[in-house]
Structure formats: structure tokens, C-alpha cells
Nucleic acid binder design. Structure first.
Lengths: 213, 213
DNA sequence: ACAAAACAAGATGTGCACAACTGAAAGGCG
DNA sequence: CGCCTTTCAGTTGTGCACATCTTGTTTTGT
């Protein structure tokens, strides 16, 4: 990968994470000049990154105003969740990947970190772990288009989950998440990818219900 | 919409159409300077458009070489078609729209143009009609994310259909397309959006089978 | 004659200066 | 005091010059 592409990916993932972890809350004004200075580039490559984030709906640039972090429209987000659920289930049906020992080992690592999180619950660490579990789920399908679309939708909705945490009981959420991890591990040990996908869908559905309630 | 955004959309749609109608065949080298001159802008806004096309996988920019129209990797495309079929079916289930008289009138227009196409079959006109029918299909769901994703995938695969036409019998394809239009019209007149979605999925599936065969 | 090196043309990537625009604060006036 | 106007600081958008890179050609040395 070229040096320019490398930098683009680095900036893109950094900004996306800051937005999705609410370091840059909805409505916040990002300054191209400031960000460019922070990352040690000029505005030009940075603008290339912001353009991508804008195409993906995470920011919106207004001439003369600034680049604003988009707000999450709840009604639209529930629709996105509807779609995410369907895509999650498709992971089990479209080009399912082989369940390798490496994959199981990776999942065991997540389970362990889930246990650590239960001992000392913390929203931000939870959000990160959640992201990693999502990335793990993507590895279960070889359908690249499905992975791309799922990722796109995930990062589009990731913020509202973190935003809902104050209204929920963090410890309960961690417990539920750990159960999902355990269930997923059981399904994968049995080599049943479709079951794992259904579990994922079920948990997304229940998570939405708790957030809406 | 701002003037800049308007121009962006205009350039984007123009280039996307040229790529998908094979005016710009895979492998063709686009010159930023030439395109900018044609559209009467400088390279800067044009590069913003090319960046978007690159993020969507339609072109690829190589430093020192040029901006190349991507080739369609068949194995990947069949995966995309798998996904398109699922999304097409979802249109009937996720936030189905109301079947309005305007919608039916629009479909009647397409049926009429299908009849005209049958009298004088022509690949390019067929491709355009196909695109419009696709756009019509999107109007059947109110789920904006589903529309976005479907559109993305459609334009990602549109080229291989046009590329396969020489291996198929154009008149037969037109007939099949007209049958799909008629079936869709029947389903919508009955107010059965899910049936219309299933018909769409079935025809995508059969179309892929003919292209692969 | 051939191979390797140097050159040239042309492409995208970058940085900078300026244009266009917005929102708020300051100032003037009834 | 209230309201309109003007000014101003700050932001994104644009155009241009140049850096960097690739490829094909030309030149040169053996």
C-alpha cells in the first residue's frame, strides 16, 4: 500500500473512532486546519478523509460554517438497525467462512476480556470491546460486499448505543454481552455458523428494544 | 442545495453513468485534467468526485499512472449478486411504501417503453430502461439505508450485465424483462409489495444464471 | 547489436494563497 | 433601549504551481 493510502487509512480510522466513541459528539465543529496540524499534514489529504466521512454520513461540511459531526436521527437509526439485523443473519448464509482454531482462539480472548470488563464495568472499554466483537463477526463470512455494507451500517449506528448507555444499567448490559459471547462460542465450537448469526441477530434485536424502551 | 453540491452530483452521476454504460470500459485511463476541462471546472472539484467513485470501487487512482476504471472481478460479482438478491427481497419486508396511483402510472410508463424496446431491441436503451426500473424498485421501500445500499450494489454490478449481453440473445432478454414488468405490475395492482420483491429477486437470480451459463 | 542508464512526458498527490461564505459581535441610529 | 447595518474573524471551496511517481523513449557505453 502506498504511503499516501496508509496515511489516509490512519486518519480515517482515527476520526471514525473519535466520532463513534463520542469524543467528537454530534454537532461538534471540526476544523480542517486544526486537525491537519494535529496529524502533521496539510489540509488537502485531510479533506480527502473528511469527504469520505461525509459520504458515509458521519460528518457534514457546510461552506463558511465548518465540518459538523452529524446528529443521529433516531427514526432513521431504527431503520438502519432493521437492516443490520438482516445483514447479521445473512453472515451465516452467504459464503460462510471456515471455523478455524485461530478464530476460536480470538473469540476466547474476547470472552476473557468480557470477564475483565464485568469485574470493572466501564462504558468506553465496553464500546471498544463491542467494536472488536463486531469485527470478529465480519470474519465469519467470505462475502466481501456483505462485510463492507455491514461495517458501513455498524459505524453509522455505533454512536447511539454509547449515547443510550446512561439510560441503561451498565452492569446488566455487560452481563448480556457476555452471554452473547458465550452463546456465540458454543455455536462456533459446534461449527454452526448460522446459529452464531441468529444469535447475533437476536441480540441486536433485543438491544434495540432495550434502547427504545 | 448549494451550487457546489449540485455540481458534485452532476459530475458524479455523469461519470457513474459513463462507467456503467461502458462508455468508459474497464481499464480505461481517465485524465483528471481532460475531464476537468470538459466539465468546465478545475481539477479540485473533479478530484472530489473521483475520490467518491474510488471509495465505491468504480475507479482506482494510481500515483503517476492515472485514474483507471476498475475491472469487474467475476467471482466477487457473483457474491455481490447474492447480496443484491437478499436486499431486493428485503424491499418487500422492511418499511414497505404505499402503492400510490403515481407509482402505478410510472410503472405503466416503463411497460410501454418495454414494448417499444421489443419492437426495436437495442442494448444501450435496454440498459437505461433497466436502470430506471431499478430506481422504480427502490421507491417501494421507505428504508433509506436499504435504498442506499441497494443502489451502491446495483451500480457495482451494472457493468457486467451490459458486458454479458453479446453472449445472450438480446430479444430474449427483452422478452424476459417485459414479463418481469408485467408480473410486477400485477403484484402492485394487488397491493402485494412482498410479491413484487420476490419477483425481483427471482429475476435477478435467473439473470445471474443466464450470465454464468 | 544490445543492455543499461538517463531522459522526457504525463499522470496523480500536496501545499499554499485566495475566493466565497457564514455567524456573531460591534457600532450607529431612530 | 431596540433594531438594523456594518465589520470582522474564521471556515470551507477553488485554482494553481510544484512535488512525486510511473512509463516509454532515447541516448550512451561496451
Amino acid at each position: 500500500m502506498s504511503e499516501a493510502a496508509e496515511r489516509h487509512r490512519r486518519l480515517y480510522e482515527a476520526l471514525r473512532e473519535r466520532i463513534c466513541l463520542l469524543d467528537y459528539p454530534p454537532g461538534m465543529r471540526l476544523s480542517e486546519a486544526t486537525l491537519a496540524a494535529e496529524f502533521g499534514t496539510s489540509r488537502t489529504p485531510l479533506r480527502r478523509v473528511l469527504a469520505r466521512l461525509e459520504d458515509e454520513g458521519l460528518v457534514r461540511s457546510l461552506h463558511g460554517v465548518g465540518t459538523l459531526v452529524t446528529d443521529v436521527d433516531l427514526e432513521e437509526m431504527w431503520q438502519v438497525y432493521d437492516l443490520r439485523m438482516e445483514l447479521a443473519q445473512l453472515v451465516g448464509r452467504l459464503s460462510p467462512a471456515a471455523v478455524t482454531p485461530e478464530l476460536l482462539a480470538q473469540l476466547s480472548g474476547l470472552v476473557e476480556r468480557g470477564a475483565a470488563l464485568a469485574r470493572r464495568p466501564e462504558a468506553r472499554a465496553f464500546a471498544r470491546l463491542n467494536m472488536e466483537f463486531f469485527a470478529f463477526g465480519l470474519a465469519l463470512t467470505a462475502n466481501e460486499a456483505l462485510r463492507d455494507l455491514s461495517e458501513r451500517l455498524y459505524f453509522r449506528t455505533a454512536r447511539i448505543w454509547l449515547k443510550s448507555i446512561p439510560n441503561l444499567v451498565l452492569a446488566d448490559e455487560v452481563d448480556i454481552f457476555r452471554r452473547e459471547l458465550a452463546e456465540t462460542e458454543a455455536a462456533l465450537r459446534a461449527g454452526d455458523l448460522e446459529a452464531a448469526a441468529l444469535i447475533r441477530r437476536a441480540h441486536i434485536s433485543m438491544s434495540v428494544a432495550r434502547m427504545r424502551g
